[in-house]
Computed example of a mutant assay.
Amino acid sequence: MADADTDRLAAQRPLSPHLTIFKPILTMMMSIAHRITGAGLYVGMALLTLFLLGVAIGGDAFAAVAWIASGFIGNLIILMIVWAIFHHLLGGVRHAFWDRGLYMDPQGRELMAQGTLVGGILLTLLLYIFKTLAS
């Protein structure tokens, strides 16, 4: 008898919504990007470790990592890591505001999501401008 009641109740429960049900909105995309950048930063730190290991070993190892890091692919990877750092940082700030109950209205959520997106790009560009001017 208990199994029949459990089956009946389970059949009445709504299915959990998933990404195909919701219309994509900026806050959802920024949340997904925050998770992706967090995972990407693990890969970036592994690459940084390999680079520092090549520098520490010296000789041919340093020549190899310096060649990769100074080329187009290396610069692109560094650019992506820098953007991921800024984007993830600003996403964390956005979540810290939300944890305190701030900017939870629809306009505030949209403003914070836009700030995360634009801020990450602008901070990355500013850093590269300063890098270019310094060299």
Rank of each mutant, 00 (worst) to 15 (best):
D99A: 15
F97T: 01
D5F: 04
L117V: 09
H95G: 02
P24G: 03
W67N: 06
I32T: 05
G119D: 12
H95Q: 14
I77M: 07
V118Q: 10
A11T: 06
G58E: 08
F62S: 04
A96D: 07
V55H: 11
M104F: 14
L125W: 01
L76A: 10
L15E: 15
G91M: 12
R109N: 13
H88K: 06
Q12Y: 13
I36L: 10
V55P: 01
L41D: 09
I32M: 10
L126F: 14
D5Q: 13
Q107W: 14
I81R: 06
I32H: 00
G119C: 11
K131L: 11
E110W: 05
T49D: 05
I36V: 05
P14S: 12
T49R: 04
W98I: 05
V82G: 13
F22V: 10
A46N: 02
A4C: 05
T116K: 00
Y42R: 07
L50D: 00
I57K: 10
D7K: 11
G101N: 10
R8P: 02
A96Q: 09
K23H: 12
G40M: 03
I21Y: 12
S70N: 15
V55L: 11
G119P: 09
T37A: 06
G44H: 04
T124S: 10
G71W: 15
A11N: 02
Q107V: 08
L126T: 04
L125S: 09
M28N: 13
I32F: 14
A66R: 00
V82K: 00
I85G: 05
T132Y: 11
L41P: 01
H18Y: 12
S70H: 11
Q114C: 11
M80A: 15
H34S: 05
A64E: 03
G119A: 12
Q12R: 13
K23D: 01
I73Y: 15
L125H: 07
T6F: 02
A134Y: 15
R109H: 12
M30C: 03
L89T: 04
Y42W: 11
G59Q: 07
L47A: 07
H18I: 03
I121S: 15
Y103S: 11
T49M: 14
T116P: 06
G115P: 03
H34Q: 02
S16D: 08
L89Y: 03
M104L: 15
T116C: 11
F62G: 03
V55D: 05
T37K: 02
A2L: 09
